[in-house]
């Protein structure tokens, strides 16, 4: 059964005109910013497929700026995102890209830069405002915008996963699902997991005590 709740049908509050091309686009950018961990100073946005073809009329570009500025799809301020970005001095560039046939038609590649810190996130809007983050800095990902998601970049070492699992246990969090992708050359791994209940911020400091942890982000949207 696809729709189990009445709010699946009358509970999605969003800025129009399109749940996939506006709300979903905003959500990808919002999650991208959470992954970067702060507001970027410079952004490069690459629109792929249907996003590239119809972004103008759907306000896909504006929605992405809004997400990067920290607005969620429910925020009425979305339509003013360009002006706010200008005011805040966000340096941006914008291009139409072809990521290839392996990518969903509603995909966007977002480069976020602040000084020496850089991150690339590729995400797709898969319908009805639902999204999936496909790549972070070339590492395969696969999580959506579900609440209670924990994303960790770590050095690919023995015991890294055990330390993560132990820390979650310490915080009495039950892991609902967990996945890992690796870059064998760089010896780093991306770990993402979904917990059954809300993940407290203190968990980040606890995890950072382990030397193999590079960064930790809580996606709670």
């Amino acid at each position: 059964m696809k729709y189990t709740s009445i709010f699946d049908v009358i509970g999605h509050i969003m800025v129009g005109p399109s749940s996939s091309h506006t709300a979903g686009a905003c959500q990808i950018a919002y999650v991208a910013r959470l992954l970067f961990g702060k507001k970027p100073k410079t952004v490069k946005i690459g629109l792929h497929g249907s996003f590239a073809e119809t972004y103008k009329g759907h306000g896909t570009d504006i929605a992405i700026f809004a997400g990067l500025l920290g607005f969620t799809p429910e925020d009425d301020m979305i339509k003013n995102a360009f002006e706010i970005a200008e005011k805040e001095g966000l340096d941006y560039s914008f291009e139409l890209v072809d990521l290839g046939v392996d990518y969903h038609p509603n995909s966007v590649s977002i480069d976020m830069i602040d000084g020496s810190e850089k991150m690339n996130v590729i995400g797709a809007s898969i319908g009805g405002g639902n999204i999936i983050i496909n790549e972070i800095d070339g590492l395969e990902a696969g999580f959506g915008g579900e609440p209670n998601t924990l994303v960790i970049l770590n050095h690919d070492k023995i015991g890294a996963l055990a330390n993560i699992a132990n820390t979650l246990q310490k915080f009495k969090l039950n892991i609902g699902s967990m996945k890992i992708s690796r870059n064998l050359k760089k010896k780093i791994a991306l770990t993402w997991l979904e917990a059954d209940t809300a993940i407290p911020e203190d968990l980040i400091d606890e995890l950072k005590k382990y030397p193999e942890i590079i960064w930790v982000r809580i996606i709670n949207v």
């Binding site: 009358i10 800025v15 129009g16 306000g59 504006i62 925020d75 979305i78 339509k79 405002g129």
Partner: peptide, 8 residues
């Protein structure tokens, strides 16, 4: 269509 806030 004008990017207003609505309920789908």
């Amino acid at each position: 269509s004008g990017m207003g806030l609505i309920v789908a």
